[in-house]
Amino acid sequence: MEIDVKKEGQAVIIALTGRMDAVSAPQFDKTVDDFIEQGETRILIDFKTLEYISSAGLQSILALAKRLELINGTVLLSDLNGAVKEVFEISGFSSIFPIYDNLDAATASI
């Protein structure tokens, strides 16, 4: 999995590419841990080029959301498609996370 990060206004935008599985999810955890330690509280995850996610990936996203909730932060998700979207739907994650159709819509709401 590739992780590209940029800061835009108040938010950190994390774009994921490839496969978020039990091997690559810890890499994501490390990235978001570093940002939270630096004081970031608004995180937007762009799934446009993520092809695959397993429960390990979902657990990382949930753990991030739980941490941000404790510090009044927020996590927004954008552009889920294909297998990733299906996994969010069947796990019920679609209904507990704010999900936007595209990055622009997500960025506008921050």
Partner: peptide
């Protein structure tokens, strides 16, 4: 339980659910 909120939602347990589904 796949209905609950972020706070109540447990980390883990999803893997087997995915296998079954």
């Amino acid at each position: 339980d796949i209905q609950c909120s972020i706070k109540e939602r447990k980390i883990g347990g999803l893997g087997v659910f995915f296998i079954q589904r």
